[in-house]
Structures are given as C-alpha cells and as structure tokens.
C-alpha cells in the first residue's frame, strides 16, 4: 500500500437482526439497540446500531483492504447514530485512503463512514502493520 491509495468503498446493510446477533456476541444488551420505545424514551430517534457494530464494520473493511494485516490501532468517535428501521435495513458506507506508510511498515488509513449521506464516525482511524518487502 502506498500513501494516496484510494481504497474501494464498501457498503454494509445493517438490520435489526444484525443488532440482535451483535448484542449476543458482544454482551452489550443495551435495549436502545433493540427496543424502539426505550430508544425514544432516552431521546434517540429510534433503535440505533451499537457504535461498536459500526466500528466492527470499519474493521471488516480494513481487513479486506489490507489482506488481514495486523491491526495496531482502530478507533472512532460515534458522532451520529445509525438508525436501524424495524423492516429492511440501512446502509453504512465505509471508504478510506492510505494516509501514510512508514519505513517499518506502519500504514495509517484515513477513513470515512456514512449513513444516508451523513458522517456517523468522527476521526475514524486505523493503523495496520504490513510486511516490509525484503524484511
């Protein structure tokens, strides 16, 4: 990977069933990710995806882009909710570019994740370690 490389956009459809599976897998059974009434009672626009589910989708894109390179850093702010309707799903679009590559193979990715055209992550960032040619 080289600085400036544009990574192919990835689109993930998120459904309520995905959130149920993620709650089970992660242990995060916060009802704001399942129950419309509870979500609205705390001022949310509806059932929202776990921020960590969205970040996991970013991790999935990073994995694909980097051929499953070792992840050194991964993180983001959850700046806008991903509202997931009861029927069908909602698309999260993850895009990225290679921002920097160090001599020892640390690759920093500048990322973006949107839902309905709105950014849902603030300062999303990933750093992976790629094999250095000849090393």
């Amino acid at each position: 990977m080289r600085a400036g490389d544009v990574l192919p956009e990835q689109v993930f459809t998120v459904t309520r069933a995905d959130l149920v599976a993620y709650a089970h897998a992660s242990g995060d059974h916060n009802p704001i990710h399942q129950d419309e009434e509870v979500a609205r009672s705390v001022g949310l626009p509806g059932v929202i995806a776990h921020g960590m589910y969205t970040l996991a989708l970013v991790g999935r894109a990073v994995r694909d882009w980097t051929d499953a390179a070792e992840v050194v850093e991964l993180g983001a702010k959850f700046t806008a909710p991903v509202v997931v309707p009861a029927d069908g799903g909602v698309d999260v679009v993850v895009s990225g570019t290679v921002k920097d590559v160090t001599a020892d193979g640390l690759v920093t990715l500048a990322l973006n994740a949107t839902c309905g055209g709105q950014k849902v992550l603030g300062m999303p960032r990933a750093v992976v370690r790629q094999a250095v040619a000849g090393a």
């Binding site: 993930f12 897998a25 992660s26 995060d28 990073v62 991964l74």
Partner: peptide
C-alpha cells in the same frame, strides 16, 4: 466464531474489535 459471524468476517485473525467483549464487562 460467534463474534466474527456477528460482524460478518472470518474468525482468523481474531476481529480487531473483539476486546470490547471484555472492555464492556
């Protein structure tokens, strides 16, 4: 495997966000 399936990726390597399971606890 359960976590990887839930986030839609293979189980190898361990998904990067897996430590949230423990951080959440």
């Amino acid at each position: 495997a359960v976590f990887a399936r839930a986030v839609g990726q293979p189980a190898e390597p361990v998904p990067a966000t897996f430590p949230i399971v423990l951080a959440f606890e």
